[in-house]
Structures are given as C-alpha cells and as structure tokens.
Design a protein around this nucleic acid. Structure first.
Lengths: 145, 145
DNA sequence: CATATTTGTAACAAACACGATTTCTTATTA
DNA sequence: TAATAAGAAATCGTGTTTGTTACAAATATG
C-alpha cells in the first residue's frame, strides 16, 4: 500500500494558515516548512479548496488562506477532503458465486467498513484546527523554557 | 495507496472456518472460495496463527482451523493480526527544523493517529466472528426463500 | 499595457506496496 | 515409501504516491 501522508501534510499546512488567518501563504512558503514540493502543496490545497476549507488567490500577494475560522474546521473535514482511499477494502476479485458465505460476505463487509470508518471520522471530528494550533504553540512555549 | 484487502479476505476465511470449527480446511479449498491464490491464503493464515486465532496442521488431512470459539474472536483481533499498514501516516521526510509548528506537529499527529485508530479498532471489537457467521447464514436463508 | 508573481494543470519518472505465481523445503499421514 | 499440505523464498506485474518539470491562466503593480 503506497500509504498516503496527505492528511498529515494537510493538517500541518492548515495549522500554519491558522496562525495568521487573514494572510495568504504561498505554496513555496508552505513547501519550505513541510519539506515537500510546491506542486504537491498546490495539489493538496486544490482538494481543500473544493471542500471549502481554504481559498486561493492568484498573482502577486496571492496564495492560500483559511476559508473559515480555525475552530470551525475539524480534522474530519480535512480527512474527508484529502483522503484518496479508505482504510479497509474489499478484495479486487469478488468471491466464488457458489459459496453462500462468500455471497453474503460482500454486504457484511461493507456494513462493517462503514461503521469502522464512521468511528474513525467521529473521533477526528472531536478535534479542531484551533485545538491543534493551541497544542502546537503550547509545546513550543514549553520547549523554549 | 496500494490498498490491502487482507482484512476482508481474513474475515471471509475465518467465517468459513467458523462454519465447522473442528474441521481442517486446506489453503486450496479456501482459495477456491475467496478467489485468490493458495499461497496468499497461507501467508494470511501465518499472521493469524501468530496471533493465536487459528492453528495449522501439515500433511494429509491437515489444513487450518480456528484456535478459539467464533464468539471469542473479534474483528479487532483480525484487524490487528493482518493489517500491515495503518490508515494514517506521517510524511516520509520530517518537517523543517526551523518551523516551530512543524516541530510540534509530529507529536501532535501521532496522538491524533493513535486516538483515531483506537476508535476504529474499538468499533471492530464490538463484532465477533459468530456475529458475522450468523449474519451471513441469515442472508443466505433470506435469499433462498 | 507590460511584467512579475502565483496558482492550476498536465505529463512523466522513481519509489514503493501488494497480489499472484513458481519453486522448493519440511512435516505428517497412510 | 509415497502422497499430501503447510512454510518460505524469489520473482513479476500492476497500481498508487510523490517528486519534478514545463507550461497555461490569472492578477497585482508600476
């Protein structure tokens, strides 16, 4: 599984944006902090823009900034916006048609997956960007002392 | 994301085993129902054996069978035994050392991932193999009528 | 209006993970 | 001894993600 780390980079980026909610940051500035490539940042921001989490501005002085207040953006919003694939998957090839267990299994697994993923996003929904930023700043202060 | 479907095939296989808890099924028989390769089944069963979920027997009449009663095996047991990678991931390259947000972000994300994955496995823990088998047989009966 | 800046998008290579497959070894039953 | 079945290693093909380059589109500034 080429494990995607888009969620991690997305949360990191949004925490940066939450520091100064009115300012535009460029993809170059963000890429410098997240240690990735500006095009990767722009691709990620495109997903978040489509989800209404950020807004972008072309041209000089442009970049990306939050579209809502940090406390109005939950990690579940981020997860849903950027996660390309789900944590649990059905097999590529369906089970044998002659096996009664196999026939029922697909529906059963889909139900199980749905409940499990709801539990995951439900937990993520309990944390907002403002929680993340506060936590990060607190750690920074503690480390500085 | 090369999405692994080992959990799905694992649950399917264990449901087959739960049908006749005392009998050994061969990897060939299982592969025929799950529409995969016997070696794939044996690899998967090796993980489940290490977790104490199944036990194997070499030679004629051998194969694999459950090591515990179906109601003593939860889907969280299966998930933990076979899931090779986690649903959420840190970036490959760590963030810029000069960025205070980036420095704190790793620890914060690890905490978030841990809580989210606990929520996932917590939900999976609520279902046992005997629930899955009952559900499958009920669907089979309903479809037959 | 011209220029510089910045996002948006497409295309491509490299790295990586997973599944399928083959082959061989080991253990066990008859 | 022979047949059966798991165990383990090596290899191949495929699909996904990331990084990268190149270029088009939009916009602010002078």
């Amino acid at each position: 599984m080429p494990a995607s780390c888009q969620f991690a980079i997305g949360v990191h980026t949004l925490a940066l944006l939450a520091q100064s909610p009115d300012a535009f940051l460029t993809s170059n500035e963000i890429a410098e902090s997240t240690m990735t490539h500006p095009v990767v940042v722009r691709r990620l921001m495109a997903s978040l823009q489509e989800a209404g989490v950020v807004e972008t501005q072309k041209g000089p002085g442009g970049g990306v900034r939050l579209a809502r207040l940090p406390r109005q953006i939950s990690l579940a919003d981020v997860y849903r916006a950027v996660q390309t694939s789900e944590p649990l998957h059905l097999p590529h090839t369906p089970p044998n048609k002659n096996c009664p267990i196999g026939q029922a299994m697909q529906r059963i697994l889909e139900q199980i997956f749905e409940r499990a993923e709801s539990a995951l996003t439900g937990e993520l929904a309990r944390t907002t960007l403002s929680d993340v930023l506060e936590n990060a700043l607190a750690q920074h202060r503690a480390h500085a002392s």
